[in-house]
């Protein structure tokens, strides 16, 4: 646990890696919000923000999906804004960003360890990264209208917690590896 916190702190305290983590976090969050339907088309140009339903802040509309409290009209895009959905998207995005950058750092440190260890460090982050993508995969299938998407709809409640758990395990594994690299 201490190794995990040390790695996270290390990644976020350096401007280069912190920017990379932040960029991945924001891109993933936007993708997640788009695929879950919080961000979509339908805008008629112009900029406007309305917050007519703060009372629905904690009201759910599905497993780990919360009611929007406001609307952002952003040109051709409309964002039905739920602070909780946004926070969830940013949290998973942060975990993905940390996994990706930690994996990259392990891979970029071959002189301190064997090639095998470096490769397995990067490979170790892959299941977690795939899990992050899995949150959106069924939604993407439904969006594309593929016939087996319906069968996946019932899995939706498990995807976000499952992805977060896998990402945490992946990051913890990477942190241990990085600690070994630093110690050697």
């Amino acid at each position: 646990m201490r190794a995990l916190l040390r790695v996270v702190s290390s990644l976020l305290s350096r401007p280069g890696t912190a920017s990379a983590v932040g960029a991945i976090m924001v891109v993933y969050a936007l993708l997640y919000l788009w695929l879950t339907g919080d961000i979509m088309g339908g805008g008629h140009g112009g900029w406007l923000a309305l917050f007519p339903a703060w009372e629905r802040l904690w009201q759910t509309r599905g497993p780990l999906q919360f009611e929007p409290v406001g609307l952002f009209f952003l040109g051709r895009l409309v964002w039905t804004f739920s602070p909780i959905n946004t926070l969830l998207a940013l949290t998973v995005g942060l975990l993905i960003g940390l996994n990706a950058v930690a994996g990259w750092r392990v891979w970029r440190s071959p002189r301190h360890c064997s090639l095998g260890a470096a490769s397995s460090g990067l490979l170790g982050s892959l299941p977690a990264l795939l899990a992050g993508g899995a949150c959106c995969a069924p939604l993407l299938l439904i969006w594309l209208g593929l016939p087996f998407a319906g069968a996946l709809a019932s899995l939706a409640p498990m995807l976000l917690p499952g992805a977060a758990l896998l990402l945490l395990i992946g990051l913890w594994g990477m942190a241990r590896r990085m600690a070994q690299v630093d110690d050697s």
């Binding site: 979509m40 339903a53 629905r56 929007p68 039905t80 804004f81 209208g145």
Partner: peptide, 21 residues
């Protein structure tokens, strides 16, 4: 309606013109 939704957008497609689902 008491809810916040993007009423200018149909997540399944469109009837004018006919598209999507």
């Amino acid at each position: 309606t008491g809810f916040v939704r993007n009423y200018r957008y149909d997540p399944y497609g469109s009837y004018t013109p006919l598209s999507g689902y």
